[in-house]
Nucleic acid binder design. Structure first.
Ligand SMILES: [Zn+2]
Ligand SMILES: [Zn+2]
Ligand SMILES: [Zn+2]
Ligand SMILES: [Zn+2]
Lengths: 165, 165
DNA sequence: GGCAAAAACAGTATAATGTAACAAAATGGG
DNA sequence: CCCATTTTGTTACATTATACTGTTTTTGCC
């Protein structure tokens, strides 16, 4: 089981998350011959500002303060497309928003747990889920290629405060 | 394992799918004291026209021919909201579209298999997936409430034609 | 360095999806 | 029938995303 839930859901030194993500991104891009330009890196940095998915127009609003240059929708979406292609971020379809991938480069299933109270999202990849999915879909005659799993619920912190026991 | 993949992915008498869905809808709504008005029933009927998810504006375009009255976005979205609340349809977030639920009324996980070639979507509910998900999310400290699983791949028909063996 | 090709970026306009707010009509119980 | 509630119609607008055109920047090559 591979997950960043520990960091996402508890107090932690988030600067280390950011630094690690940017380091991984630079490594991966140079390996792939992909160009992590200042703009793209700024967008990735913004997405990693927190563990909450960030929308494209929110990124556009935040970019000027981060880079000094203003950015309109197409510019932001081009960067997002690049980051998606490189596997550095994921799109959260149910929120129309984007979240940094904590383990890019490694093949992993895409399962996102979203807290409905605080909005924090953590990613999780587990063989047990993957094999259960492969198994039942194959029995249904379906050849699964990609998966998009978005779970809504309560994170450990928000569960304590007035949520279920 | 509960699924409508057999019907969705193979030749079948689709009129029976439609009739059965509308019958179930009428039953459930009368049980719940919910009002399945002509408009709402027409929207449900349109969504059941095929096993491909249908967008809200496509429904708006098709409604006049189906009912004689024109329908604008808010009207369509209100009917959609009603049908979602009653569990008669599901929203497919990755497509911004809506699909009829083949087993409304019964508690079931929401797992949709979408063929990227023909667009057909089938629903599947399996205990093995549910328990694997509950297990790994609980271990991650997450209290799962609702799930939205959208799988992309190839249906049996499209897999044969030039797809993988 | 100078130059051509490719890539990235900027900007305008517009498409597609979804919602807020209020008016009008239908429904159903006294 | 009369009133309260629900449903539907209508206008306006918000949000998310893309098509397209031209400009700038970068890159590889000489
Ligand atoms: Zn962090
Ligand atoms: Zn990931
Ligand atoms: Zn059918
Ligand atoms: Zn269903």
């Amino acid at each position: 089981m591979l997950t960043n839930s520990r960091a996402a859901y508890h107090d932690h030194n988030h600067q280390r998350c950011i630094d690690a993500a940017l380091d991984r991104a630079r490594d991966l891009c140079s390996q792939q011959g992909a160009r992590l330009t200042p703009l793209r890196e700024a967008v990735l940095h913004l997405i990693w500002t927190s563990h909450r998915p960030l929308g494209a127009y929110a990124i556009a609003d935040l970019l000027p303060a981060a880079t000094g240059r203003k950015a309109l929708a197409p510019t932001v979406y081009r960067s997002i497309e690049f980051l998606l292609d490189q596997g550095l971020i994921h799109r959260v379809a149910s929120l129309n928003a984007y979240i940094g991938c904590p383990f890019p480069g490694s093949r992993h299933s895409e399962l996102i747990m979203i807290c409905r109270a605080c909005g924090t999202a953590a990613e999780l990849s587990a063989d047990s889920v993957d094999s259960a999915l492969s198994d039942v879909t194959r029995r249904a005659g379906f050849f699964m290629e990609t998966q998009n799993i978005e779970l809504l619920g309560l994170c450990p912190g928000c569960r304590g405060e007035g949520g279920p026991s």
